[in-house]
């Protein structure tokens, strides 16, 4: 099955121009670019999410992960409850300033490649909590690759976001887009 799908994928001709490290090493050969596509295809269908759940949005995360919406269809079913085994962190719920160093440490402990999903209004912008205690958007602490709006987002929105993230993972053109501030390559300050 998997081989068949790779074959189907690789026969598509509308591939992007690659200027990646690998393609430079292989002289931009057909083999290198196809290999990279295959690796990215494998990555996008085998997310190991780490649910960093702190608040009410968690209910919708559980609902998404449950059998009715079945996140397993997208290959992201198996949550790992240690960041060292995860490559995708769902930040779900209100992040307070007191919790911010812990979230940063979780992000730092994840092995690369890694992606961050900001799940809900609280993590994206502080949401309803415009006050002294809540971080006004986790993009002030760690890079964010995908924002899912809603308070809380419906499972459909989460699945839509996941599909968009998969598309992004498939088409990432730089070698290490998860590095630095919003993929800029600039290192994160301490």
């Amino acid at each position: 099955m998997a081989n068949h799908r790779i074959a189907a994928y690789l026969t598509r001709s509308d591939r992007r121009q690659t200027t990646t490290d690998e393609s430079a090493a292989f002289g931009g050969s057909f083999v290198a670019t196809r290999l990279r596509d295959a690796v990215q295809w494998a990555r996008k269908y085998s997310f190991f999410p780490y649910p960093f759940v702190t608040a009410c949005c968690g209910m919708e995360y559980f609902s998404t992960a449950g059998p009715r919406y079945d996140i397993d269809r997208f290959g992201a079913a198996l949550p790992r409850f240690t960041p060292r085994q995860a490559d995708l962190v769902f930040v779900v719920g209100t992040i307070t300033h007191r919790l911010a160093p812990i979230l940063r440490r979780v992000y730092d402990q994840m092995a690369e490649p890694k992606w961050v999903v900001s799940f809900g209004a609280c993590t994206s912008s502080g949401g309803p909590y415009d006050n002294y205690a809540v971080v006004q958007g986790i993009d002030r602490i760690i890079p964010v690759h995908l924002y899912i709006p809603g308070c809380p987002p419906r499972p459909e929105a989460v699945l839509d976001g996941l599909i968009k993230l998969q598309a992004r993972v498939q088409h990432e053109s730089r070698a290490t887009p998860w590095k630095g501030i919003h993929g800029s390559g600039r290192p994160l300050p301490d």
Binding site: A100, V135, Q136, D139, R140, I141, I142, P143, I181, D190
Partner: peptide, 10 residues
Amino acid sequence: QPVQPLHGPA
């Protein structure tokens, strides 16, 4: 009074 220093575009 942030505990973790803030950075990034926002």
